[in-house]
Design a binder for these strands. Structure first.
Length: 428
RNA sequence: UCCUGAGUAGCUCAAUUGGCAGAGCAUCCGGCUGUUAACCGGAGGGUUGUAGGUUCAAGUCCUACCUCAGGAGCCA
């Protein structure tokens, strides 16, 4: 049994492929069958003279996505898209298919999303999901090779860490649990135990956002380091992003070609990234004529304007404390600012990383919890981290789907995950 | 929650000022020995999102609702 992605090794040999019929064209006494097997696509040429009338006629009526076993001789041919094609000697139908809904012509987003389980059979979706695979591997290899310990955090959580309006409640025996929005707080505990840790899993936000950058379920990798500062976090994030982009450029050339992704902007991604303080970023926005409220957070269009000033991701740091979560440490030199950082991807893909240095002082943390009107008892265990050997520590979260969308040059994150979950879309 | 836009054949879209519901693809039948979203000939396929209203006449105008898309807010 051969696989299409390694067909070159079988040049001149008779091989058997197991796959599906992707497309079919005919020309009198020849059929051109595009076969896919999950690893790639190949054109199988069936000649009436070789296989006889019966099989030839049957093959002329095969529906798109019919599953089949094909035996034939592999031959290099410049006319074939992949450089190789197969002269069919035998063909057997495994499972018939009739009226496959996703035809080679164009379809609308709604139609395709309703058939996402079939849409992922198409060539572009293969390319995107392969890039996702590589991005995830690159992320894991990056942390694993730097002494970070994978310590995953729970999906069921007892309380909100940043307000309840964006949480999904679920029935948990005789109480209510919430799906996690971030592994952040548990990650801090893990860092106090293991030093350098990361968690990587799905996170859930019940935001009623309908934009190209939002999913209600998305995957986030979150490193956290004990004895670390904002500066350490910015450096780590730069190196992570650079390494992930380089690895994808190296391993997924063919997929990026399929997606018609211009590689030039990705090749610019090298450390160090340009850095702006919040104040400097605000000045750029004002100079660009954006109606921007000083002290507020940046909106999506603001982020795009900022990112457009540079040829690689830009780190914006020291946001006003008021715009950030209660656990952010204030800048000792400017207590109204937080030791926080967002990294904005180029080409309008927005915030891909958010993080900073955490508040390590017990009294100040208690004060912040009160200011944010959060229930202190819910954070008892978290406060223990400041009671028993508190240290400066820092970390960040990186959204995988936004990174994949950016690297692939997609106009929406929904294609970066096999089954996207969005407002109004829970099926399939 | 708010703003904007769109719902016509299985799919993607046309339909002029309110005046006979149309094309390409897909499907089915036939043709073609090198096709690349093949091409050529033929056939079938419609409660124009739903419910009302105006009119001699509504896909087209009015009202409400439903669904979807893009965006705002919020965020990775």
């Amino acid at each position: 049994m051969a696989h299409i992605d390694e067909i070159a090794q079988h040049d001149g040999q008779t091989v058997t492929l197991q796959g599906w019929l992707h497309n079919r064209r005919s020309s009198g006494k020849l059929h051109f069958l595009t076969i896919r097997d999950g690893s790639g696509f190949i054109q199988a040429v069936m000649s009436k003279a070789t296989v006889g009338d019966t099989l030839f006629t049957q093959a002329g009526h095969l529906g798109q996505e019919t599953s089949l076993t094909v035996e034939g001789v592999v031959r290099a041919d410049a006319r074939a898209p992949g450089g190789y094609e197969m002269d069919v000697t035998r063909l057997e139908v495994v499972g018939a298919a009739a009226d496959y809904p996703i035809t080679p012509k164009s379809h609308g987003v709604d139609f395709l999303l309703d058939r996402r389980h079939l849409w992922i059979r198409s060539e572009r979706q293969h390319a995107v999901l392969r890039v996702r695979h590589t991005v995830i591997n690159a992320v894991r290899d990056f942390f694993n090779s730097r002494g970070f310990i994978l310590a995953d955090t729970p999906v069921f959580t007892p309380a909100a860490c940043e307000g309840t309006t964006t949480l999904f409640p679920v029935s948990y025996f005789d109480t209510t649990a919430y799906l996690t929005q971030s592994g952040q707080l548990y990650n801090e505990a893990n860092a106090m135990a293991l030093g350098r840790v990361y968690c990587f899993g799905p996170t859930f936000r019940a935001e009623k956002s309908k934009t190209r950058r939002h999913l209600t379920e998305f995957w986030m990798v979150e490193p956290e380091m004990a004895y670390a500062t904002l500066e350490d976090v910015i450096k780590l994030a730069e190196e992570l992003i650079t390494s992930v982009v380089a690895r994808t450029l190296d391993e997924r050339q063919r997929e990026l070609d399929t997606l018609e992704r211009n590689r030039a902007p990705l090749e610019q991604v090298r450390t160090p990234f340009p850095r702006l303080t919040y104040d400097e970023a605000a000045q750029i926005l004002t100079d660009q004529g954006r109606p921007f409220q000083m002290g507020g957070d940046f909106g999506g269009p603001d982020e795009t304007v900022l990112a457009e000033q540079f040829d690689r991701p830009v780190a914006v740091h020291r946001y006003p404390s008021a715009t950030k979560a209660f656990y952010m440490k204030p800048d000792p030199e400017r207590p109204d600012l937080s030791l926080s950082v967002d990294i904005l991807a180029p080409e309008g893909y927005g915030e891909i990383v958010g993080g900073g240095q955490r508040l390590d002082d017990l009294d100040l943390l208690l004060q912040r919890i009160q200011e944010h009107e959060l229930p202190q008892e819910a954070f008892d265990w978290y406060l223990d981290l400041r009671r028993y050997g508190s240290v400066p520590h820092a970390g960040f979260g990186m959204g995988i789907e936004r990174v994949v969308a950016w690297i692939c040059g997609l106009d929406h994150v929904r294609e970066t995950i096999p089954y996207p979950r969005m407002l109004n879309r829970l099926r399939p």
